[in-house]
Amino acid sequence: MPDRPDYSALTRGQIALLDRINAGETGLPTLHQVVRLAQEALGGRGAGFAEYAPDHGRIIAATGACAPAIGRRVDRADSRLRGGRTLLIPLDSLNDEFAKHVEGGDVRRMLGARCEVGDAIVGSLHVYFGDGDGEPGPEHHAVLELLAAHVGRLYAARAGLPVHSSTRQDARDLWVAVTSHELRTPVTVIKGYADTLTNHWDSLGEDGRQEAVRIIGTRAGELARLVDRLLSAASADGEIGGSPAGPFDLPETLRGAVEELPADLRRRMLIGNLPAELPKAYGEKDSIATILTELTTNADKYSPPDSLIELCAGADEETLRFRVSDRGAGIKPEHVERAFERYWQAESGDRQHHPGAGLGLYLVRRLVERQHGWVSLRPREGGGTTAEVRLPRA
């Protein structure tokens, strides 16, 4: 780390940033630009921003060594940042899960600044330094405080960034509307084909009866998954039933989950790198089928029907991961966090053939975070979207 911040980079970066803000670009891509500028101007190994909901934080933008932690849920840092606007903390003094997942064993210190709108802390901006870096001085603190103020300005604009506030009545009304609409379609189809079998059994012939039974089975599976989603979304504490956590073989579990996918979806799957020698993951083995079904169904919904959906897995020192990648239109950077909100759906996709309640990714995040893991989305190089799930190592 230089003795002084890189003021040339800071000036250029602020001009570009202010140009975007003045043009009305106040969403997640602009926030990423602030985070990149913090790392560049202060000479850190990485930088990140944790957005604060009422009871927790989540890393929604990160660069450098911190990039793998995007999507990670963390504790709110209000108590650490309530004194001065900035604070330098040795990472070995923190009980901070985020600190465990920055890449590089020599990352040792975090300089953090709170980001405010009025009296409310909307998040915290952090830059990470290593053993070989010098001690951040007053000028480094001042620059980070300046950039944190820019983040506060983005949130004050209330456009394009994740939103955590909704009234209970709004949520209740939306719950009733979504439930009534989403349950009606599969129930109607199942009843219709059951009535057809009852009233026209002989005239249908063997092929007709087999097709009717197949459709009933498919729709019943969709209905079961939908009920799971709705029950999860309706629960006050976010907990839904699951198997006890323990060590399990992630590649083997993923292969088994693929076999449970609908036949049309299974034919689109490309099973890439699922190395047998990976260490054990720690979590709820039975949840992987649900998580994979939701991620692949989402990929199917927003990508051409003749394109492949790829699945691969890997590991690092702290986590195991698996990725589901498609070659669809790709998720917009400003939507990578909104996609996990309850009832939110992207504008693209064929709604007529792929209706949905906007609960699939919401359910995935709830399931993964319950296992002390995290899930993130990002645009895929060359087009499409990649969903990544990380779980603790056993």
Rank of each mutant, 00 (worst) to 15 (best):
R327M: 03
V163S: 14
G221W: 06
M110V: 15
G205P: 10
L359Q: 04
E206D: 11
W374E: 03
A281S: 14
M110W: 02
H164E: 06
F340L: 07
W175P: 00
V227P: 07
A313P: 08
I89V: 15
C312V: 00
V375P: 03
H141Q: 06
R225P: 00
G71P: 06
E388Q: 06
F322S: 09
E206S: 08
V74K: 04
P392F: 10
R393M: 10
S166L: 13
P262G: 07
A276E: 15
L17V: 07
V122D: 13
L231K: 09
I59F: 15
T196S: 10
R327H: 13
I60T: 13
T253F: 11
P90A: 09
H181R: 13
H372G: 02
T179S: 11
G83D: 11
G256F: 01
G104R: 13
I59M: 14
L125V: 04
L254S: 00
L308Y: 02
R321D: 13
G112H: 01
R378T: 08
E337V: 14
H141I: 02
R323M: 05
G384L: 08
Q345G: 06
F98L: 11
P279F: 07
L81T: 03
L230P: 10
Y282I: 12
G382V: 08
H126E: 10
A156T: 10
E369R: 09
R73G: 04
P305L: 13
S165A: 10
R323T: 14
H140I: 05
T179W: 06
I331E: 02
R229V: 10
N22C: 13
W175Q: 08
V324D: 05
R268F: 05
C66M: 11
A394R: 01
T86A: 13
G192C: 05
A234C: 13
L391R: 01
R342K: 15
S235I: 05
R114Y: 05
L28C: 00
P275M: 12
E369A: 01
A23R: 14
L87E: 13
L154F: 07
V364D: 04
Q371G: 05
S376P: 01
L361A: 09
S376Q: 12
V389M: 03
V102Q: 06
V102H: 03
Y52R: 08
L125P: 03
R365Q: 14
C312P: 00
G349C: 11
N199R: 10
K280L: 15
H200A: 15
F248A: 07
V151Q: 08
A142H: 04
A224F: 08
L226Y: 11
V143K: 01
L144T: 07
G134S: 12
G64L: 03
N22R: 11
A357I: 09
P279Y: 02
E334I: 01
P5A: 08
L231I: 15
A194D: 07
V176W: 10
A61R: 01
D55S: 15
K191G: 05
G217I: 02
G383N: 04
E116F: 02
V227D: 12
V102I: 09
A23E: 14
G242L: 04
V34H: 05
A159F: 14
E206T: 14
A113Q: 06
R323Q: 13
A313C: 13
E334H: 12
R229K: 15
F129M: 04
G123W: 04
S376T: 12
R76E: 02
T253N: 09
L274Q: 06
R366T: 12
T11D: 05
R267P: 00
